[in-house]
Design a protein around this nucleic acid. Structure first.
Length: 688
RNA sequence: GCCCUCGUAGCUCAGGUGGAUAGAGCGUUGGUUUCCUAAACCAAAGGUCACAGGUUCGAGUCCUGUCGGGGGUACCA
């Protein structure tokens, strides 16, 4: 199935264009540059071709200032289609398009590029409109869509860790941006509140709880119980798997030596033989690694005499935990009671993290919420003859996939595939969304492929389902980010460390000010909190979401280059200018900006043009749900501002007129940075 | 085995459904401050875009193959 989206994403119903580029309202004054240019070119193009929209997409910002501000590249493909020289086609379009108020006379260059240079008078007019608008000139969409965004979704009984950053932060940014543009965005945190981890806690509570600790610090004690039981279960599983793992190593060793001895003359190996041997070597290494992990896991427990004794006394713990989980699901009164007791405490714990991250959800309907809907949906799948039993499990065999989607295990338990189906139906019944977005890591692609196919089987075709996938956070070694001892890194600790480093930088900077420190201890701490949290979020958002990226504190908090800090710094400098200039903002904002603005120097014009691109950047971001488009835009704004700042004195400008004009630019830049960062879930500070 | 992904400067990364001379930050080298926050700015050096074919007026981008990394692949989520 051809897809207009990134290959790693999955969609159905490509015909629903969700956040398509809208034609602007004829009356809407503030508007985006690209939207406007496309509007102007639409009719002339429609006279030449029936694929005008495709051609309109080929209008884009110029790559090189020599080619003006924007360029249109459609004359070449159009020339081919019409069997005319592209330059002639370009000339014909240029003659018909009405851009005189907006652009200098268009130029045709090279094979048929159309170069557009915006009139400064037009920029001034648009900028003035944006300046006087609370929304900075960004229009709301004409056709708002209802879009459910499913992100974050941690298991409530476990501490959140580094793996939750991306889903949480990217999902939140998409949510904020959609809302800002006027869509009805609904965020739903699909909490894991019903799984095996509760079986572990319940088992732990029944056998290992310290009542006093539980009374004083319930969440901490539950966390301890989870970790303890988890460890014992892992230990037991490791013991059970060890002999298989050892056999696998032996087998790999045998295969390798057989292969090597069959190739007698090693200096005259064929390509295939070389390849086979390397592959066998890798297999051996993998097998050894797996075995060593198991050994380490076993050793860790056995080294600790207390743990070892617990492991001996609870030899059936792996099974028992599953039984506790099954009991919970089956309605065992004691387990239900415990679950109801634990759940609010776990949720509270997780909320403290969300508060730190400044993230709120419209809904938090966890897995448990759908429990009663699983049986009926499975029944329906059977009634419709879509599901059948295989090896005792109830399966959906989907034509495009080798392995089936299992909706009920042979022990009768349901899986998350089942819950996901029920969740989609619930959302459709209650919110009637145009789309549901799943911000989930790329490893679950196949799950979503199957899930979406199953949804179609159930007859739901009037909805777009999309997996917004993202890559892995890596450590310096290029492997998933972990502590040196191999443990997963907790999110809370990550935030603390980020704030700690931000604090150090804030202090260093303030202490080294030529005029002496300006910040109180309280201010320093507050700034460090904002800057530290921002650094972490921004580091994540500024990478292409589909890429893996290497996590690096130093770079993140380095406060140079494309970081949140650089943007926040720009913002703070602007606030400083406005304060030092004793500017009455209310008065400034009521000024007739259109007549006050003057963009004579190129840093002024560049900055102004950059500010006008905000709406285009947002559209582009939502086109494929890529927050790094917005971070790149903000970096460009901040860079333009730095150049402007360097070359254009604001407070001591040559004339009152220029001073006012530059103050307007400063204020609008500050508001744009603030608004842009806000859409990424990031705050600003006035001083830093 | 099959499927999905990635390979761009010393390092970390950008590079819409193909468009003009492949970009940024860090690092390196050199320069800028009696001046609104130098956490800044300017300049230079640094690239066979993994490799080989192909499609095209035009390929980092699309197709095929090869090499290398990561991930997934029947009852975890």
């Amino acid at each position: 199935m051809p897809s207009p989206y990134h290959a790693s994403d999955t969609i159905i119903r490509t015909t629903i264009q969700l956040h398509h580029r809208e034609q602007s309202q004829p009356t809407a004054q503030p508007m985006n540059i690209l939207t406007t240019l496309r509007d102007r070119f639409r009719q002339p193009l429609q006279q030449q071709t029936d694929v005008a929209e495709k051609m309109l997409d080929m209008i884009r910002p110029a790559q090189d200032a020599r080619f003006g501000d924007y360029q249109a590249n459609f004359a070449m493909p159009l020339g081919k289609q019409l069997r005319l020289p592209p330059r002639d086609v370009a000339a014909r379009i240029v003659e018909q398009v009405n851009l005189n108020d907006m652009c200098h006379p268009l130029e045709i260059a090279g094979p048929g590029f159309i170069n557009l240079k915006l009139r400064t008078s037009w920029i001034v007019e648009q900028l003035a409109a944006a300046f006087q608008d609370d929304r900075l000139g960004i229009p709301k969409v004409l056709n708002p869509k209802t879009i459910v965004i499913d992100y974050s979704s941690p298991n409530v009984a476990k501490p959140m860790h580094v793996g939750h950053i991306r889903s949480t932060v990217i999902g939140d940014a998409i949510y904020r941006a959609l809302k800002f543009l006027g869509h009805r965005a609904i965020s739903d945190n699909h909490l894991g509140d019903w799984g095996t981890q509760f079986g572990m806690i319940i088992y732990g509570y029944k056998h290992f709880v310290d009542p006093e600790l539980y009374r004083q610090h319930p969440v901490q004690e539950l966390g301890r119980l989870y970790k303890l039981v988890h460890r014992l279960v892992e230990y037991q599983n490791a013991v059970a798997q060890l002999s298989d793992a050892e056999t696998a190593v032996e087998q790999a060793e045998n295969q390798l030596s057989t292969k090597q001895s069959s190739v007698k003359d090693l200096s005259r190996k064929t390509k295939k033989e070389t390849k086979d041997i390397r592959k066998l070597r890798n297999q051996l290494a993998d097998a050894k690694e797996h075995r060593d992990v198991l050994l380490e896991r076993i050793d860790q427990v056995e080294r600790d005499s207390q743990l070892a004794e617990l492991a001996r006394n609870h030899s059936g713990i792996a099974h028992a935990v599953l039984a506790e989980t099954a009991g919970l699901h089956a309605g065992d009164p004691e387990n239900r009671r415990l679950w109801q007791q634990f759940l609010p405490k776990c949720q509270e714990e997780i909320q403290t993290i969300y508060q730190r991250l400044d993230i709120r959800f419209d809904h938090e309907l966890g897995e448990s919420f759908y429990h009663d809907r699983l049986e009926p949906i499975v029944q329906r799948l059977q009634d419709l003859s879509h599901a059948r039993e295989s090896d005792g499990a109830l399966c959906l065999f989907l034509p495009e996939f080798d392995a089936p989607m299992i909706v009920r295990k042979k022990d009768g338990a349901f899986l998350y595939a089942t819950t996901d189906l029920a969740t989609i139906e619930y959302r459709m019944e209650n919110w009637n969304p145009d789309a549901i977005l799943y911000v989930v890591d790329h490893r679950q692609k196949e799950h979503f492929d199957k899930l979406f196919a199953a949804v179609q089987l159930l007859g739901h075709t009037n909805i777009q389902l999309r997996h917004i996938s993202f890559g892995t956070v890596l450590g310096d070694d290029g492997r998933p980010y972990r502590t040196r001892s191999g443990d997963i890194i907790g999110l809370e600790g990550l935030l603390d460390e980020s704030v700690r480093r931000a604090y150090a930088v804030v202090c260093k900077n303030d202490d080294s000010r030529p005029t002496g420190p300006q910040l109180t201890e309280q201010q320093r701490e507050q700034i460090a909190r904002v800057v530290g949290h921002a650094a972490l979020k921004y580091a994540d958002l500024s990478h292409n979401r589909t890429s893996d990226y290497v996590f690096n504190y130093d770079k993140m908090v380095a406060m140079e280059g494309n970081t949140a800090t650089y943007m926040q710094y720009s913002y703070a400098r602007i606030q400083s200018i406005l304060a030092r200039g004793e500017v009455d903002l209310e008065q400034l904002r009521t000024k007739n900006a259109a007549s006050a603005l003057t963009l004579e120097l190129s840093p002024e014009r560049d900055l102004a043009l950059q500010l006008l691109r905000f709406g285009d950047a947002l559209n582009e971001m939502l086109d494929d749900y890529r927050p790094n488009i917005l971070t790149a835009y903000l970096f460009a704004v901040a860079s333009s501002f730095s150049k402007f700042y360097q070359q254009c004195d604001v407070i001591h400008a040559d004339s009152e007129r220029i001073r006012t004009s530059r103050l307007i630019l400063c204020d609008l830049t500050g508001r744009t940075i603030k608004q842009g960062l806000k859409l990424l879930g990031i705050d600003v500070v006035d001083k830093m």
